[in-house]
Design a protein around this nucleic acid. Sequence first.
DNA 1: AGCCAGGCAAGTG
DNA 2: CACTTGCATGGC
Length: 276
Amino acid sequence: MFSGDPPAADAWYETVVGADDPRVDAPVTLRIRQQPDGLAYEASEEAEELIRSMIGLDDPLEDIYAAMPSHPLITAAIERYPGLRIVADPPVACLLSFICSAQMRVARTYQLQLQIAETFGQSWGWDGVQLRAFPTAERLAQASETELRELGLGYRAPYVVDSAELIATGELHPTDVRGLPYEQARTELTRFIGVGEKVADCVLLFALGYHEAVPLDTWMRKVINSYLPHVDDGSYTDLSAGIRQSFGGDIAGYTQTHVFHLLRQTPKQDLPPGAS
DNA sequence: AGCCAGGCAAGTG
DNA sequence: CACTTGCATGGC
């Protein structure tokens, strides 16, 4: 764990899913956590279905694990994080958040989201708790680059404003790509400002249900170099196709997320030995 | 004091 | 298309 990281699975995670999310008509405030005897949640509305959808509870984990290749690193990741799911985040918040994540540490990106919500998001009170939703695209499109730089976004500030504007004007929306073939959907998402192929992969995987997506960040590139030297290292497109093949095709994103967490939370000497 | 972080846009060849 | 450079900021 790192200082500033999001709450652990056994701590309460609190959030507001806004009315700009296709799954709800009005904002739903909820908190959720893992307990020894199962999942616990409290919500401002009936939210069983929403939560199941948001945390991938109905994904067929046994089939998914069965489809993962038997590689020492993958096996170790499954044993370490059995039950880990891919979330289905609200698409707009996911897109704008991952724009902020470029060349930034996970913990700091998470803290930035809290600040963006605190500064621009709508406040929702529920059960003695006051929470702020991630702001709508309309609100962020009205923010100034300077305001966002003051939060520490650096050069990403104009990217967020410009992409929020694309959404707010109706010119382009992350959910527009639903139904497109994977690589076509990825290319389409790069029309957003500040969205390259890596961030596009994150949105496809963590918001739009493309479980074959494998975001090629610095961690996954290390994995390829250390454990999968046979994967063709050319363009992002080629490397992406190679690692998706090596990680189980349709469910490669599930493999990626298990491996990603194993790498981030395991001292190097405790990882399986590399190939080369 | 560098080096790096869930990269991207813009410019050049 | 492939490759290079500049870019904000904070933690170690």
